Simulated assay, not measured.
Amino acid sequence: MDFVNRFEEALNNGYIKAFFQPLTRTISGKVFGAEALARWDDPERGLIPPGEFINSLEEHKLIHKL
């Protein structure tokens, strides 16, 4: 998939979504924050993990738009 050329469309159509993963203290087990993770929910391919598109966005200087 050509992530770079489809990125603007994905942003404009809401295909890029934020998912929040809790950060937990090891000893207490208490949640102390969250990490935001981007997922690309493509209508054709389904949910695309960040490992498949983040590097392309960084290489093409588009990561700031994320």
Rank of each mutant, 00 (worst) to 15 (best):
G33S: 05
L57M: 05
F20V: 08
T24Y: 13
L62N: 01
M1A: 14
P50R: 02
L62Q: 05
L11T: 01
R45G: 04
I54L: 10
V4R: 09
A38K: 03
V31T: 14
P49R: 04
L37R: 05
E35P: 02
A10E: 00
P22L: 06
V4E: 10
D42E: 09
K17D: 05
D41S: 12
L47Y: 10
L47N: 11
L23D: 12
K17N: 09
P22V: 04
F53V: 04
F20Y: 15
T24N: 11
A38T: 05
P43H: 08
E44H: 11
G29A: 01
S56W: 12
R39Q: 06
L66F: 09
K30L: 12
L11R: 05
L62G: 01
H64M: 14
R6T: 10
E44Q: 14
V31E: 14
F53T: 03
I54M: 07
I63N: 06
N5A: 15
D2V: 03
E52R: 10
F19I: 10
G46V: 02
F7I: 00
N5F: 12
I48V: 07
F3S: 02
A18N: 15
N13H: 13
F53P: 00
G33I: 02
K61E: 15
K61F: 11
G33Y: 07
F32T: 07
Y15C: 04
E9L: 11
I63S: 07
R25Y: 12
E44Y: 12
P49N: 06
A34R: 11
T26R: 12
S28Q: 07
G14F: 08
V31H: 10
N5H: 13
I16G: 02
I63L: 10
V31R: 13
T26V: 15
A34W: 11
F20P: 01
I63M: 10
P22F: 06
E44T: 10
Q21I: 05
A10H: 02
E35Y: 03
K61M: 12
V4L: 06
P22R: 08
R45Y: 15
V31A: 13
N5Q: 15
N55H: 13
E52D: 13
P49H: 07
F3D: 03
D42A: 04
D2M: 03
A36V: 09
N13M: 11
L23E: 15
P43E: 09
G14W: 08
T26P: 01
W40N: 02
L37F: 09
R39L: 06
Q21D: 04
S28G: 01
E58L: 09
F7R: 00
D42P: 00
L11G: 00
L57F: 00
H60K: 10
F19P: 00
R25G: 11
K30P: 00
S28L: 00
A34Y: 13
L57C: 03
Q21F: 05
W40V: 03
E44P: 02
F53E: 00
E9W: 11
I27E: 14
G51H: 08
E35C: 04
E58Y: 09
N13D: 11
P43T: 06
G46D: 06
Q21N: 06
A38D: 02
G33K: 07
A18I: 13
G14I: 05
F32S: 08
E58F: 09
T26W: 11
N12M: 14
P22N: 07
I16L: 05
R45E: 15
D41L: 12
F19A: 10
A38Y: 07
F19R: 08
L47W: 13
E59W: 06
F53R: 02
W40F: 08
W40R: 01
